[in-house]
Design a protein around this nucleic acid. Structure first.
Length: 481
RNA sequence: GGCAGGUUAGCCAAGUGGUAAGGCAGAGGUCUGCAAAACCUCCACCAGCGGUUCAAAUCCGCUACCUGCCUCCA
């Protein structure tokens, strides 16, 4: 049984999808800059939710949006002296580049606000028609607002009551609104801004209406999971609920609201401070699977404080996982692709521990611990194997490798050392390393230990490689960090 | 001011009633010419105080710190 923490109820609930296919919508980003680590954390978290539900046998339809028209994009266009649409395209390309690197699977469908303008207008018109929205009559301005007081459930997600919102409002009340809580569905275009024709004149959609419209258009009036950062609970998701349920008359708009905790840099929130770390800059020095492992090793709901020093630890951890699989394979272990495996008890138990952890609100921290346990057991078997492994040992090793690949794949972690950071070692350098290692082998054969040790240090220091002596001779690999 | 969350070993971090997962660091050991890697062993009275309970890191109350949201934000 899978349980999830639902912001709507404030509790952990049993996960039971409405229909055979889990319909999942995640609030995507506004492409106005290169994506940062906060984005990485959010989309990795939701990617894992999707992957795990599939692992447990639930088909998932995953939809994610791009807010490709917005004040910030207009500003980005001005900053870079290009049209807003081109700025949006540029940063969407950056999004895909970074998310692909982090093994975040692409959504089944991406929706773009600018491609849903007619549906958004129809949505707004529907709300006006059934009395949940009103257009300002002021000839100078053609904004359309949602009439919050017509929706009694307003505040049920963020647990805010009317008094609290009135008391806490930090922006001056707009006296043209009927209620302080009312929010814009359609905004009249200001001079120089992009606009679309509408029954209310030239303008563009408000921020919240897009997600309601696109979610309904692609997934239907009611969905199973709505995800996003916890900063979106209010007002964005609260408003989505109001609009959607006011139009469809169906409650709930989304059955499970899953919110990912924000990523902190020291005391400052990334997007606010303007001091954010791009994914790309981290991937210059950290293997992508290691960054992914770091970002998923804590439960998705809690606030995540980013410590650069942790990158090296998780890089080492990821490499250990890769090495363990590689060492077992070197002894003849194979990944078993058929459902028939040897069912080594210890690995069966670890699989159960992994599932128990993930079933519990996607406890990736416990899942990682289970993988660590599997790695340890696999290495234990590898270490015990002297000479040619027995058939029994091959079976155990194969079971171990198969399990590790299965579990890491469920978390989206590739055990592929070719994804490691590759310092520039050209063929010439490789030849030189091999030559020096031959010299060292000769020194070792002559038991000239001091000289051979000195040479080892020299090679490692010069080329950023790690040299290990094995019974079959010295091997080296790139291990700069 | 309103709402929400946090305080677990030197560091990071799981754990919602039955006597503390995991990783790093540290100590000892096996292996090794030495290393490296791997494996084995050791390493926490869960912010403080009070309460409920046969039993609490886990539930309740109070105190002290910390953080997020309440405005565009993932």
């Amino acid at each position: 049984m899978i349980t999830v923490t639902n912001t709507l109820s404030g509790r952990k609930e049993e996960f039971q999808p409405i229909s055979d296919v889990v319909r999942m919508y995640v609030c995507g980003l506004t492409p106005k800059n290169d994506p940062h680590l906060g984005h990485a954390r959010l989309f990795i978290a939701n990617d894992i939710i999707r992957r795990y539900l599939e692992y447990r046998g639930y088909p998932v339809k995953y939809v994610q949006n791009f807010t490709d028209i917005d004040d910030k994009i207009i500003m980005a266009g001005q900053r870079e002296n290009i049209p807003p649409a081109e700025a949006a395209r540029r940063y969407m390309t950056g999004y895909f580049r970074d998310m692909d690197a982090l093994s975040v699977r692409r959504a089944d469908e991406f929706t773009y606000v600018t491609e849903y303008i007619p549906q958004i207008i129809a949505f707004i018109q529907g709300l006006i028609d059934n009395g949940h929205a009103y257009a300002l009559q002021d000839a100078a301005d053609n904004d359309v607002y949602f009439a919050t007081d017509t929706f009694p459930g307003y505040g049920k997600l963020s647990k805010r009551n009317e008094d609290a919102m009135l008391a806490g409002a930090r922006i001056a009340a707009d006296e043209r609104k009927r209620d302080l809580r009312d929010f814009a569905l359609w905004k009249a275009a200001k001079p120089g801004e992009p606009w679309w024709e509408s029954p209310w004149g030239h303008g563009r959609p408000g921020w919240h209406i897009e997600c309601s419209t696109m979610s309904m258009a692609v997934l239907g009036e009611q969905i199973d999971i709505h995800g996003g950062g916890s900063d979106l609970i209010f007002p964005h998701h609260e408003n989505e609920i109001a609009q959607s349920e006011a139009l469809s008359g169906k409650d709930p708009f989304a059955k499970y609201w899953l919110h990912t905790g924000l990523l902190q840099l020291g005391a400052d929130k990334m997007a606010h401070s303007g001091e954010f770390i791009t994914i790309r800059s981290v991937l210059d020095t950290t293997p992508a699977p290691a960054l992914r492992l770091y970002l998923l090793a804590q439960s998705y709901r809690t606030q995540f404080t980013y410590y650069p020093s942790q990158l090296a630890l998780f890089t080492a951890r990821w490499r250990r996982w890769c090495d363990a699989a590689q060492a077992a394979k070197a002894l003849g272990a194979v990944e078993i692709t058929s459902p028939q495996h040897y069912q080594t008890a210890v690995f069966e138990q670890i699989r159960n521990e992994f599932i128990a952890a993930m079933d519990d609100d996607f406890n990736t921290s416990g899942a990682v611990a289970a993988i660590d346990a599997a790695i340890k057991r696999l290495n234990e078997t590898t270490a015990k194997t002297k000479g040619a492994p027995s058939e029994q040992q091959i079976h155990i090793l194969s079971d171990g490798v198969t399990l590790i690949v299965e579990l890491t794949a469920t978390l989206g972690i590739a055990l592929d050392l070719s994804l490691d950071i590759q310092p520039a070692i050209d063929d010439e350098a490789r030849t030189e390393i091999e030559k020096l290692l031959q010299q060292r082998a000769a020194l070792r054969a002559a038991k000239q230990w001091q000289e051979s040790d000195r040479l080892r240090d020299e090679i490692e220091g010069t080329y950023g490689v790690l040299i290990q002596d094995t019974p079959s001779g010295a091997v080296w690999q790139i291990r700069q960090i």
